[in-house]
Design a protein around this nucleic acid. Structure first.
Length: 451
RNA sequence: GGCGACGUAGCCAAGUGGUCUAAGGCGGAGGUCUGCAAAACCUCUAUUCGGCGGUUCGAAUCCGCCCGUCGCCUCCA
């Protein structure tokens, strides 16, 4: 399998250190607001990567963190008058409920920064001992100048960064590039005891501690959104390689393109977020997933309800293709479709092309059904390919209809009687009335169906 | 100022130098089926890939310049 590596800016053959097991670390969320469709994109992409790697025989150790302490979390909990832990636990639960609803497989381990403080302190201590970090009062900073390769991931030089910097220069730091590993606590802030005084970990260091602790010094895949390349992942590389003295920290760095909304990026600061919860009220999980996978994972994608609606309509055709069929003529052989599907997945997770194959097979099945062919093998292949993309092909539940079902059945029955006595005007009236309640009628060779 | 991405049909969106007179989806037009529909299926819907040059036997794909859109450099998936 080939994967694009942000580090080399090129597509490379994927070869984990261990031929059977894959160590994958995916940057998780900072839990202080509802899970939005941008998160969904990122985690669905890595879910598909994982499903595909598992399909090809690898065992995946997938670690995903929660950075459950930072400035935003502190501010939000103050605003709501609850503890930081209450706030983050609420949104971590929201995250799990959302991911389950999207059929995203659970990671192997979900470490939380606040539960790893002793290890984080140990990591920082070693960095200080080795000369990579220094304390100023109760703050600790990483000494960027000591990292010769700094900028290797985001392809920028420290000189450029300093000259174009929008950050106010902090006089405590040796260099404006240095970043905080430990932040001494201010008034009314949560704090943990440390050799440098009470405080909390800075952003970045938790990932170094957790990834090395749960996956070892070198990862096979490290992933996250494109917006994490700088400074987060750049700083992780600097810290981690300084800490372990091993390079590279991760063999492959994968970054998904960011979801746009209208003209802008969807982001917390712009406040143009669409929560997954609200998206799932309008669209099925399959439709949302298929929509997000319909453009390549490294391209930006513009989220729209219209786009999801279009995908929902297209899904209906696939669901139809999977309905049981009694064909007895020769088998439809799906092996070419499967081979094409897999070769597109092999090519840097080319889900748009893979999806095109799924639609090709769906059409082929429907065509074969009409000529009474046996399509069972082809149908199970279609289901299998869908499963690699995390699609269930489940028919969306119309829960509001279950109570009305006996009445709809009755109307359909009456309509059938009317049709048999050629009273089409009344029959069509029933159909129109049902249609106005979003219930559609289909007269098939096996009787009338409604949904 | 630095780094990077993208510009393909009415819309969304692939495209791994030659099988690209460019996948797939939505929408649209016509047809088969049907009492009529719906669904499904069939046919059609970009001789052309922002513009201009260049490399090559050959470019949507590589290189340069220009125009336009966006992202990162500050919290972010």
């Amino acid at each position: 399998m080939k994967l694009y590596n942000t580090l080399s800016r090129d597509t490379e053959d994927f070869q984990p250190q261990d031929p059977k097991n894959v160590r994958m670390y995916v940057c998780g969320v900072t839990p202080y607001s509802s899970t939005h469709v941008g998160h969904a994109l990122s985690y669905i992409v890595f879910d598909v990567l994982r499903r595909y790697l598992e399909y090809t025989g690898y065992v995946i150790n997938h670690v995903q963190n929660f950075t459950d302490i930072d400035d935003k979390i502190i501010a939000k909990s103050k605003e709501e008058g609850i503890t930081e832990n209450n706030l983050t636990t609420r949104y971590i639960n929201d995250f799990f409920i959302t991911m389950d609803a999207l059929n995203v497989k659970r990671a192997t381990t979900y470490p939380r920064a606040t539960e790893e403080i002793p290890d984080i302190i140990e990591t920082i201590s070693k960095l200080i001992d080795d000369g990579y970090a220094y304390a100023v009062g109760s703050d600790v900073y990483f000494r960027v100048n000591k990292s010769k390769d700094y900028g290797i991931l985001s392809n920028r030089s420290t000189d450029d960064m300093i000259s174009g910097s929008r950050i106010d220069i902090d006089l405590n730091k040796e260099s404006s590039m240095d970043f905080a590993l430990w932040k001494g606590s201010k008034k009314d802030e949560p704090e943990w005891l440390s050799p440098w005084g009470p405080g909390r970990p800075g952003w970045h260091i938790e990932c170094t501690t957790m990834s090395t602790k749960y996956l070892g010094n070198q990862l096979d895949i490290h992933g996250g959104g494109m917006d994490l390349v700088f400074p987060h992942h750049e700083n992780e590389i600097a810290q981690s390689e300084a800490y372990t003295s091993e390079k590279p920290f991760s063999k492959i760095w994968m970054h998904n393109g960011l979801l746009q909304f209208g003209q802008d990026k969807m982001s917390k600061s712009l406040g143009n977020l669409v929560s997954v919860e609200s998206a799932l009220q309008k669209h099925s999980a399959d439709a949302l997933r298929l929509y997000l996978l319909s453009s390549h994972y490294r391209s930006p994608l513009n989220y729209s309800d219209e786009g999801c609606d279009a995908v929902e309509r297209s899904l209906q055709r696939l669901r139809f293709a999977l309905q049981p069929s009694e064909g007895t003529e020769q088998n439809l052989d799906p092996s070419n479709f499967k081979n094409d599907f897999l070769s597109h997945m092999d090519h840097d997770l080319d889900t748009p092309q893979a999806i095109a194959i799924i639609f090709d097979l769906g059409r082929e099945i429907n065509r074969a059904k009409e000529s009474n062919m046996n399509v069972q093998v082809a149908q199970s292949t279609l289901t299998e390919m869908g499963a690699i993309l995390g699609l269930t092909f489940d028919t969306p539940e119309q829960s509001s209809l279950t109570q009305a079902a006996p009445f709809v059945d009755l109307l359909v029955e009456i309509r059938q009687d009317l049709r048999e006595s050629n009273q089409y005007e009344l029959a069509d009236k029933i159909r129109n009335v049902l249609a106005s309640h979003s219930i559609s009628i289909e007269d098939t060779s096996e009787g009338t169906k409604w949904h």
